[in-house]
């Protein structure tokens, strides 16, 4: 279980996270929803080790991650796929995947996982020699997810994976999240598409101005009146 207790984050003088606590149980999909600037991305970035200026405790399997750098976090089994996909446009699809496995040194395992990613996303196999920058938006998202999976993670954190994609592709993205979860991976998902996220999530947290406003099983929040008004446009 990934556990965050009373997490505070500062950017310069701005107090961006004001005591966020959440739990991501093993094998589950947990989603963070909320308006822009509510602190969803900051929470993920803090867990991933990108933010130094923070207070609180982050533990995974009872191990303290709070002071680890991103490489340490990846090695402990947690990987984050950043917002905007951020694939490497000048590297080939294959090289992008190899880069995702940078923290590993088991050549056989890496080769197996490349095959696994190609099996998950056949389009990537077709385009394995192509530069990442030549892929379509949907393919880039597949590559971003595949690249994250290459670190052989136990927990995958996805920051806005559906952002900027055509509606049909958005559906695919949520399908992919379900598939990787069914393959045994724990998912922590940040989404502005609250409706779709709540539908697939086992549990959800609603963030507001740097704190948890409410939380509960995804299905319950879908019916919650406050959530509907604020995030589901109903």
């Amino acid at each position: 279980m990934l556990k965050v207790q009373d997490l505070h984050v500062w950017y310069g003088g701005i107090h961006a996270l004001k005591g966020v606590s959440l739990e991501v149980p093993r094998g589950r999909i947990v989603t963070l929803i909320g308006a822009n600037g509510a602190g969803k991305s900051s929470t993920l970035r803090a867990i991933a080790g990108l933010i130094r200026n923070k207070k609180g405790v982050i533990t995974y399997k009872d191990r303290d991650l709070t002071r680890l750098d991103p490489v340490g976090v990846v090695k402990s089994g947690i990987v984050m796929s950043p917002e905007g996909r951020r694939i490497f446009p000048h590297l080939s699809v294959f090289e992008n995947l190899q880069l995702g496995a940078y923290s590993r040194s088991d050549a056989d395992g890496i080769a197996r996982d490349v095959e696994w990613v190609y099996e998950l996303f056949p389009r990537l196999r077709e385009r394995r020699e192509q530069k990442g920058g030549t892929l379509s938006g949907g393919e880039q998202q597949m590559l971003a997810v595949g690249r994250a999976l290459m670190s052989a993670p136990e927990v995958v954190m996805l920051d806005e994976p559906s952002l900027g994609l055509a509606p049909l592709l958005v559906r695919d993205v949520f399908e992919i999240i379900k598939v990787i979860n069914e393959r045994g991976m724990t998912v922590l998902l940040v989404e502005q598409n609250a409706f779709a996220a709540l539908k697939i999530a086992h549990y959800a947290y609603v963030l507001e101005t740097g704190g948890v406003a409410l939380h509960g099983p995804g299905k319950d929040l879908l019916r919650d009146e406050r959530v509907c008004r604020a995030y589901l446009g109903g």
């Binding site: 991933a48 750098d69 950043p82 951020r86 880069l99 940078y102 923290s103």
Partner: peptide, 13 residues
Amino acid sequence: KDIETSYLMGVPV
């Protein structure tokens, strides 16, 4: 090309 994403992927920058 992208230091932050490399770091996130476990590259010891």
